[in-house]
Nucleic acid binder design. Structure first.
Length: 569
RNA sequence: UGCCCGAUGGUGUAAUGGCAGCACGACAGUUUUUGGUACUGUUUGUCUAGGUUCGAGUCCUGGUCGGGCAACCA
């Protein structure tokens, strides 16, 4: 069951509010913003969205749902050299897929370029901004350091008229990149670096993915972001912790330029970090460009598109976001919590099927040759309404190589010479013989079956283990891709001296198995459709590589495996 | 050595001056034709030193530790 119904968060069994919900509740009590709650999700279209963005999306859209407000999608596209429409498209798709709807409120910071320009003009007129001619080196030098105050620019007291004229000519394209800058006139001695006459416009003769060549000056984040919030009537501007020191500047622009009585309020929360995972767009881009992964939607990537292709459901990701909570403390979430969330979801939703990844041929010597019978299998024990399906059975089947041991340790319950196990939905069989090739490798197991132990006939006989299998003559051949963590260490961001994070990459994160055997009901499974392969894990049809003629499945996540633990001891 | 922020079990997150709870993990058990699921139980925590108070995880002061801030990035 989804936790969302009619767009309203249903899990109101939670009795405590996170600190942002608390702030909004208090604001509402004080009658701020005429009782409105309006948030926004503001990605820069310079990369694909990842699980950290999912936290922010769930937060912002979730806030609008719990307070019956609105949430905008706004592309923060003020730096044309890094941005692209490819990213815009993927962001739209990913937010929708997660289950959120911004209705007709899709905006771009670039929509406001004219308004922002006019606001900048107003700032100059008020004597609160000036056109500066410092070089990048001079800017750096004059800025000072956190412990040393900055020095004022020689252009700081340029007459208003002159700044106005220059700014207008900057826009008109009279100057080359870097020749002039527009800066806010605040305080070069401020203990907050961001208040030391920050740059608000720079010249960049670059084609913009939306405005084309209409502009050659572009506003900086601090100027554009808060004012875009203001223009859209945002009430609560939620962002991550690193923007905390920007807040005084955010408020300063509003103090100078806001006229309406409703003003946005910036609130910062701690971004998501996850073990064995990299969460920076820049580094994710590097993984793609250096071919450490195939693409942004490689199933090993922590991107939303990667998780989707891996077999994660929107519900599982939203549940995960709810579980990890929202606070201001730096955090590192164990990736096993994400895995728990998808197992929990798929356990209830995914139909079961039998598949053998590493096939070992078994011949049931006392089963009549050439005969086949049809057995019934339960589609989902958690959902009886899913009913049953037919599974063929005959003299020759495949079992999992791991389910047989010639010389088993004490706690191994599965098949071994002389031992009995149940074949799921079929019969109890006994291993009579092991056939090996000239290298001593086991190539076939010969068994006998007990016809009185057929499943569903009320057989009382108990065996220690039930194993899955696939009927050999009707088996579908498939490729199955197993994934391991992309990084070897818990915190891949920190690498050994002199090395970058790519030195932590797990070179063995992709394991492609050919000629896996699937039960025939899996024929025609839809792209992206998820299944539980009994005893193995959750798998889905790969949306890019699979075809009806040669199916490809991705393993989303294994089942919890207590045997693996016992085996390790 | 400036400014800002933070600190609750292994990992997260609640407790709004009044019994430190929940989830995940770990461990043990019950059920089971998935060594899955479900269920039960166990385990481990308020950074530190003072202060205010009948009472402090919560308020105050000092310290310690961690994070952020010096792109014409966002």
């Amino acid at each position: 069951m989804s936790d969302y119904k009619d767009g309203v968060k249903m899990s109101e069994n939670k009795e405590s509010l996170n600190f942002i919900e608390q702030i909004i509740t208090d604001d509402l009590k004080e009658g701020k913003n005429d009782g409105r709650v309006h948030t926004r999700f503001p990605p820069e279209p310079n990369g694909y969205l990842h699980i950290g963005h999912a936290k922010s999306i769930c937060l912002n859209f979730g806030l609008s749902q719990t307070f019956q407000g609105k949430c905008n999608l706004r592309f923060d596209d003020t730096n044309p050299v890094k941005e692209d429409v490819e990213y815009v498209d993927s962001i739209r798709e990913d937010v929708h897929w997660l289950g959120f709807d911004w209705e007709d409120r899709e905006f771009f910071a670039s929509d406001y370029f004219e308004k922002l320009y006019q606001m900048a003009v107003k700032l100059i007129q008020k004597g609160k901004a000036y056109v500066c001619e410092c070089s990048p080196e001079q800017i750096r030098e004059f800025r000072g350091t956190p412990t040393v105050p900055g020095k004022e620019s020689p252009y700081r007291n340029r007459p208003v008229e002159e700044s106005l004229d220059l700014f207008q000519r900057m826009r008109a394209g009279e100057f080359e990149d870097g020749k002039y800058l527009l800066r806010a006139k605040i305080d070069m001695a401020s203990p907050n670096m961001h208040m030391r006459d920050p740059i608000i416009y720079r010249i960049r003769h670059t084609h913009h993915h939306r405005t084309g060549d209409a502009w050659c000056i572009y506003p900086m984040y601090d100027f554009a972001h808060g004012l875009s919030d203001y223009i859209e009537g945002i009430t609560h501007s939620v962002c991550t912790l690193e923007f905390e020191v920007h807040r005084p500047l955010y408020d300063w622009f509003l103090d100078q330029l806001a006229e309406a009585n409703s003003r946005p309020r910036q609130i910062e929360f701690a971004r998501l970090n996850m073990t064995y995972t990299i969460m920076s767009k820049r580094k994710l881009l590097q993984l793609v460009e250096q071919n450490h992964v195939d693409s942004w939607d490689d199933p090993r990537m922590p991107t939303i598109s990667g998780l989707r292709r891996r077999g994660y459901t929107p519900d599982s990701i939203r549940k995960f976001a709810e579980r990890i909570g929202v606070a201001k403390r730096e955090n590192i979430i164990d990736v096993s919590l994400l895995e728990f969330s998808i197992r929990e979801d798929l356990n209830k939703k995914a139909n079961r099927a039998m598949a053998v990844l590493n096939p070992l041929k078994m011949v049931i010597t006392n089963y009549p040759e050439g005969e086949q019978e049809i057995l019934e299998a339960i589609n989902n024990p958690e959902k009886p309404e899913e009913g049953k399906r037919k599974v063929p059975f005959s003299r020759e089947i495949y079992i999992e190589r791991d389910d047989f041991m010639e010389d088993p340790p004490k706690k191994f319950f599965r098949l071994a010479p002389g031992r009995e196990v149940r074949l799921k939905y079929a019969y109890i069989i006994k291993c009579e013989d092991v056939v090996k090739d000239e290298n001593g490798e086991i190539v076939e197991i010969r068994c006998t079956y007990d016809p009185t132990t057929k499943s569903g006939t009320g057989c009382k006989k108990k065996v220690k283990s039930t194993i899955h299998w696939v009927n050999a003559p009707t088996a579908i051949d498939a490729e199955v891709r197993l994934f391991d963590r992309l990084f070897l260490n818990e915190n891949p961001d920190v690498a050994e001296d002199g090395k970058d994070f790519t030195s932590n990459i797990n070179s063995d994160s992709l394991n492609i198995l050919e000629h896996c055997k699937l039960e025939p009901s899996l024929n025609g499974a839809a792209s992206g459709q998820g299944f539980q392969f009994e005893r193995l894990g959750y798998f889905c049809v790969d949306s890019k590589l699979s075809s009806p003629e040669s199916p490809v499945f991705n393993r989303t996540v294994t089942l919890k495996d207590s045997w693996a633990k016992i085996n390790k001891k």
